[in-house]
């Protein structure tokens, strides 16, 4: 059992495209972009990999912020950026393919941003059948 080599550091939103360019120049592959809600803000993790060294940079954004797209360096980022847009309702600028909110068809708009009110419904006790109490 070997430990996996993963590192994480935070960067400013304005540095994102520059940092991504640096990863691209190093010959890294885009592994994923993932968003996490933390109270009133969102953390977005960009993971890059070269020779199984997984480096993650993190930006922290708030509702209404515009996130620059990294499509100029990684064309394939559109799938993750559209996911963030559809699930969290954040605006990503300059995506290579913009689905306009139609990548994920969800019943509620931006379900991870405004989770629906869940009311617990009391389960109906079924009318005990004829074989009631067949212990």
């Amino acid at each position: 059992m070997k430990d996996q080599n993963t590192t994480m550091r935070g960067i400013a939103v304005s540095d994102l495209v520059k940092e991504t360019g640096a990863f691209k120049a190093k010959g890294c592959r885009l592994v994923q972009i993932g968003c996490t809600g933390i109270g009133d803000a969102y953390e977005i993790n960009y993971t890059f990999d070269k020779d199984y060294v997984f480096e993650t940079v993190r930006i922290t954004v708030h509702d209404g912020d515009v996130i620059p797209s990294i499509a100029e360096h990684y064309w394939a980022s559109f799938i993750y950026e559209n996911e963030i847009h559809d699930l969290y309702g954040l605006t990503v600028e300059g995506m290579s393919i913009d689905f306009g909110g139609h990548l994920f068809h969800t019943a509620i708009e931006n379900p991870f941003k405004n989770p629906p009110e869940v009311t617990k419904v009391e389960k109906e006790t079924p009318a005990p059948g004829p074989e009631e109490g067949d212990a």
């Binding site: 559809d86 393919i97 990548l103 994920f104 068809h105 969800t106």
Partner: peptide, 9 residues
Amino acid sequence: AVPSIGYIH
């Protein structure tokens, strides 16, 4: 080809 998903989210 333009993919779209979300049918079984």
